[in-house]
Write a protein that binds this DNA or RNA. Structure first.
Length: 434
RNA sequence: CGGGGUGUAGCUCAGUAUGGUUAGAGUACCUGGUUUGGGACCAGGGGGCCGAAGGUUCGAGUCCUUUCACCCCGACCA
């Protein structure tokens, strides 16, 4: 992509309604813009990041034997009446009517729809297990949307639902999905913890949350310094008094608070803030029973499916990457989430030699399938650098005044270091870095 | 859903107390010139139903009523 042809509206001004770094930088960097309370548009850069995260999630799920589907976003209200959630989910479900005055719901989640899809189609134990997922828009009419993409009303979520002939097999899938999730968050380049959790409103027994560690997280968790496990404070401290006392403490106070107990691995425990980006539940037969969804077992006896459900907040992850990786200048994308891996910056487009070299490198990197953007705008050096830092490309190749000595520079967004590389070596050096 | 706040140019905001020229600044944008390694400078220019509706008044961005939207704290959710 040529920057001169792209739609990346960056701004110097901080939007007045954004308080979190991810919200401010994603808006300033031209990734997203707000359409209404909890409603966001994804502009070209935001869309690229969203798609990159979506693709990684899809690749790992497909490898794990999950089947991608796409359910209708609009569902009949009757579906929710049958499971009883039309009442229990209350106002979070946004209801609409069609021209015939039939009532519909914008899907906040899809247990019912997925059970209906599988019911009467997977009719034998031989058809099981099954794991179906979709990456689709969800709508939850939150009482108070906030924090940009972290708590929107409309958001992109991956939701998977598995169907099993036995509880043992369901638990096997649950454990397998836990390791799949670890692969996903590791590939995204995130520092995360797996946290034992209460199962919340969806119901069921086993439940684990995946938290991205970030100071601005909404949840307080206890984490180990030498392994990947953590715990929600609700599960460690018994009484409400203890929990309330902890919730009242500021993050700074919590960080200095010592915990006497050790992790089972022997590591030290401490308090951290986390953003919940994934949640896996063992559902059992709650929904299959409620919706009378059965298969025939080995003895030809009808039995309700054992189920589990697995969620990942895709759009929330976009913001989470930035909450965890930013500095005062802007975004610092991880290599797997960066909208472009390399930004080639022409310092002065009036200098033919600079333009020539930039075009040559641009073509070569493109031919090598490197995600590369060419900053060919007629702007000054400082302007382009600030812009590159705000957006957060992992590497910027600066083609400028050092060209006189046969050199260009590689600017590392994370460390902000510039290293000089000779013109002859720049292509191979870039290929080595990415 | 309780409490608080804000709506004026694309964006960030003055102006409203005490009604009165043609509603301002910065930034962004356009033109020309200068500049060219850290969001440059000079000159000129375009851009506003002052959130919406109703009212008071000779006169409303400013006062009154209603309403809508958005933000913050909390509860809820996760």
């Amino acid at each position: 992509m040529r920057r001169s042809r792209s739609f990346i509206p960056t701004t110097k001004e901080i939007p007045s309604d954004a308080t979190l770094p991810s919200h401010q930088f994603l808006v300033r960097g031209g990734f997203i813009n707000q359409q209404g309370a909890g409603l966001y548009n994804f502009m070209p850069l935001g869309k690229i990041v969203l798609e990159k995260i979506r693709r990684i999630v899809k690749e790992e799920l497909d490898k794990a034997g999950c089947n991608e589907v796409q359910l209708s976003f609009i569902t009949p209200l009757s579906l929710w009446d049958r499971s009883g959630r039309a009442d229990t989910m209350g106002k979070e479900m946004l209801r609409i009517k069609d021209r015939h005055q039939n009532e519909f719901v914008l899907s906040p989640t899809n247990e019912e729809a997925m059970v209906e899809l599988v019911k009467n189609r997977a009719t034998s134990y031989k058809d099981l297990p099954l794991n179906l997922y979709q990456i689709n828009t969800k709508f939850r009419d939150e009482a108070r949307p906030r924090y940009g993409l972290l708590r929107g009303r409309e958001f992109l979520m991956k939701d998977a639902y598995s169907f099993h002939a036995s509880k043992e097999d369901m638990v096997r899938e649950f454990d397998m999905m836990e390791s799949t999730y670890k692969k996903i968050f590791t590939r995204l380049g995130l520092d995360f913890r797996v946290v034992q959790a209460d199962s919340g409103a969806i119901g069921g027994d086993g439940s684990k949350e995946f938290h991205v560690l970030a100071d601005s997280g909404e949840d307080t968790i206890v984490v180990c310094d030498s392994c990947e496990y953590g715990a929600n404070i609700e599960t460690i401290f018994e009484t409400d008094e203890e929990i309330d006392a902890l919730n009242e403490k500021s993050y700074e106070e919590l960080q200095t608070k010592k915990i006497d107990e050790k992790c089972s691995c022997g590591g030290e425990l401490s308090f951290k803030k986390g953003i919940e980006v994934g949640h896996i539940f063992q559902l059992g037969d709650t929904y299959s029973s409620a919706l009378d969804a059965k298969f025939n077992d080995e003895n030809g006896k009808p039995k309700a499916y054992e189920m589990a459900t697995f969620g990942i907040g895709i759009s929330r992850l976009v913001a989470s990457v930035i909450e965890q990786n930013h500095d005062e200048s802007g975004c610092i994308w991880t290599k797997s989430t960066a909208p472009y891996m390399v930004n080639i910056m022409i310092s002065d487009i009036k200098k033919e030699a600079q333009v020539e070299l930039a075009e040559e490198l641009y073509s070569k990197l493109q031919d090598s399938n490197v995600e590369v953007i060419l900053d060919d705008r007629k702007e000054r050096f400082g302007f382009k650098m600030k812009d590159a830092e705000l957006i957060g490309f992992p590497y910027t190749v600066i083609i400028g005044k050092e060209l006189a000595n046969g050199n260009v520079q590689i600017f590392d967004r994370k460390t902000k270091e510039k290293i000089s590389v000779s013109v002859d070596d720049i292509y191979s050096k870039m290929m080595e870095l990415i």
